[in-house]
């Protein structure tokens, strides 16, 4: 049960990973986060989250794709696993479920 719990930032990262199929890597995720939410995440923060997600089995990583500006270093390419997809769906369903239980008056009026 504990393993399946997804943090807010983790979920964000996982969604972005899912969006890019198997082409996402650290810096790309940073950029996407900034683009989508306006938040600035440091490279360290993203990598730390990636390590955590991998430990939970929600993603898989591979090395590949060196470019010049990286000084010839490979990227750590990330791909979402089935467990990851499940976890995203579950998180969404849970929220939709909760949303539906909110009385209309509470939110639409404000």
């Amino acid at each position: 049960m504990f393993k399946e719990y997804l943090g807010e930032f983790e979920e964000l990262v996982l969604l972005i990973i899912a969006k890019h199929e198997d082409q996402s890597y650290g810096l790309l995720i940073c950029d996407e986060i900034h683009e989508e939410t306006g938040r600035r995440a440091t490279i360290g923060a993203v990598h730390a989250t990636v390590v955590r997600l991998e430990k939970k089995g929600l993603i898989e990583t591979d090395m590949g794709g060196a470019t010049n500006e990286r000084g010839g270093r490979r990227k750590r390419l990330i791909r979402i696993t089935d467990a990851g997809k499940q976890s995203l769906l579950k998180s969404r369903d849970m929220k939709v479920n909760l949303w539906q239980k909110i009385p209309d008056l509470m939110i639409s009026k404000t």
Binding site: Y25, C30, I43, G44, V51, E69, K75
Partner: peptide, 16 residues
Amino acid sequence: ELLEAVKGDLHEYFAR
């Protein structure tokens, strides 16, 4: 084991 990927990201970031 993380060094290469992290350093690569950092350098790419710096190169911009």
